[in-house]
């Protein structure tokens, strides 16, 4: 589904991604963790072309993302994305937020798009807020709408960029629950997060990054109990000690 081959990225002279090799299968849930500034979000954002890469090869859904002439818009319909700060459209209602892309990008009729919107709002448990504006919702509710918005495109994979980092603690659970359901249903997911509990419970594979490199790649069991690399051991010690 997603393949990185010797991918490098520079911001000016800053080497953000260093020789990334990574393969993600359809249906896999991959959680990327690591200290801030390690390049996790940048890595995630290259998958749908929000960030370009400097060298190497990145293939998503059979399409080479960094090739000239690649229709990024076409690729992006198949890849949903959820952001740290939700990024709902504040001038549109929940319903309008969800049906916009299905109508404008997939060309669905309003009726079809609304049907799908209801289906996914029900799934994330806030159908009753269908006519509310984002500003009237709590952070947790906004993020669940954002997930429904991504799902309404019926994507082949979903990218999550620190989806709970901007939430109050009591709202993190409701968002993680939705994500767990998705994972159980077989959605291909790439998740950047600091939620170690979620990573341990849901991930098929943990990717640990530091300073732009993939340092360690293993199953949650191995990673949390016996991390091989020293940097991963230190990171876990820091993060799990409190």
């Amino acid at each position: 589904m997603i393949t990185f081959e010797k991918v490098n990225k520079y911001f000016g002279t800053f080497h953000v991604l260093k020789n990334i090799n990574l393969h993600i299968e359809t249906g896999e849930v991959v959680v990327i963790i690591g200290p801030s500034g390690s390049g996790k979000s940048t890595l995630l954002r290259t998958i749908n072309g929000l960030e370009t890469i400097t060298s190497g090869k990145l293939i998503v859904d059979g399409v080479q993302v960094n090739a000239k002439g690649t229709d990024l818009n076409k690729l992006r319909r198949n890849i949903g994305m959820v952001f740290q700060h939700f990024n709902l459209y504040p001038h549109k209602t929940v319903l309008e937020n969800i049906i916009l892309a299905p109508m404008k990008v997939l060309g669905l009729s309003r009726q079809e798009a609304e049907k799908i919107a209801r289906e996914y709002l029900e799934k994330v448990g806030i159908l009753e807020k269908i006519n509310a504006y984002p500003s009237q919702l709590s952070g947790g509710q906004q993020q669940r709408v954002a997930i429904a918005r991504g799902l309404a495109m019926r994507p082949k994979a979903m990218l999550f960029d620190e989806p709970t980092s901007a939430l109050d603690p009591e709202m993190i659970g409701e968002v993680l629950d939705v994500m767990k359901t998705l994972a159980r249903e077989g959605m291909t997911m790439v998740v950047v997060t600091h939620e170690m509990g979620f990573a341990r419970e849901v991930a098929d594979r943990i990717i640990f990054m530091d300073q732009g490199e993939i340092i360690e790649e293993s199953t949650p069991d191995v990673f949390f109990k016996n991390p091989r690399e020293e940097r991963a051991q230190m990171f876990l010690k820091r993060i799990l000690s409190h």
Partner: peptide, 14 residues
Amino acid sequence: DKGQTEAARASGMT
């Protein structure tokens, strides 16, 4: 906000 553009572009809008 730049996040608005990113969300829209990420959903495949031109």
